[in-house]
Design a protein around this nucleic acid. Sequence first.
DNA 1: AAAGATTGTTGTTGACGACAACAATTGTCA
DNA 2: TGACAATTGTTGTCGTCAACAACAATCTTT
Lengths: 168, 168
Amino acid sequence: MTASAARPDTRPSPRKRAGNGAAPRDIAGDVGLDALVGHAGYAVRRFQIWIFQDFIRTLGDVDIRPTQYSVLTVIGANPGLSQMAVAKRLGIERARLVHLLDSLEQRKLVKRIKSKADRRSHALHLTAPGETALAKFKRLAAEHERNVEAKIGKENRAHLLRILAGFT
Amino acid sequence: MTASAARPDTRPSPRKRAGNGAAPRDIAGDVGLDALVGHAGYAVRRFQIWIFQDFIRTLGDVDIRPTQYSVLTVIGANPGLSQMAVAKRLGIERARLVHLLDSLEQRKLVKRIKSKADRRSHALHLTAPGETALAKFKRLAAEHERNVEAKIGKENRAHLLRILAGFT
DNA sequence: AAAGATTGTTGTTGACGACAACAATTGTCA
DNA sequence: TGACAATTGTTGTCGTCAACAACAATCTTT
């Protein structure tokens, strides 16, 4: 959880002292991050870890991970897409998508249909149970989204989405 | 470093076309995300991928990855910390930190000193070249941070850091 | 038809998180 | 004091994931 709530910038000077190996400090209690605070990447990484764990936990009963959810969502919204198109849209490699689809196809959620137009490619579709399952996943995903709101605040979440809109 | 040639990242605009369930799909160029837009986790994941790649690229000449940089920064700011304390502070496992420190110690950037107080633990310090190297890393990290500003805007970055301050 | 590009697939590599087990050491408590 | 539990660093395994490389089948271009 990493409490560390109120911590103004007033840190007692990073006291550098070499030589002896004895420097007992509060274990995990008050370790200064100093330069690390203020790095966007670090904050985003920690936040992403939290948000993914909450997603996995909230969708734990249906055993759907964030990447699987994104694949299902894109296919559901755009039936007939090729694997290449899905991979390009989601920013994942087509080699990676192969395994993702293998798993989803084994679970009878999606199906690969050999395209008549281009016999190299597969047209991706949701199965009938896949459609109803996705509807349930979306309800759980909305619940996860409410968890995010509860964590950082409703308006902060909205603002964050606006800031990062260019990356979706 | 590969740097992802040609950067297919050139997305004209978020272009939300939500609402209707009908999905007019263009083959590869314009795939609707629909429900995926509006998920904080997706936006954060894409942003984090971008930010890490930029960090790795900007610090490419010195061959320092984000996790390594965070370890060096914490040790530099708190000399004498134990491995357990560093791991707990950064949210990484102590088993993982072992390999990270092995690498950094091989490069003569940090050193493990057997603690006199607790002979189980190691007191972590930067070496002399480690100190000067970290100074250079920090300059490059600041350059990376300016790239983030250029990408999302100065005030947006500041606001984002404020929103996510609780996760650092 | 020949050459080149694309699509799906398989495989490898390396970073990373989650666990489990272990020796050495320290802390605790009867 | 001595037995027992907890901690620290280490090693190892397993699974996820991104980045590449190579390949056969199939377009596309010339």
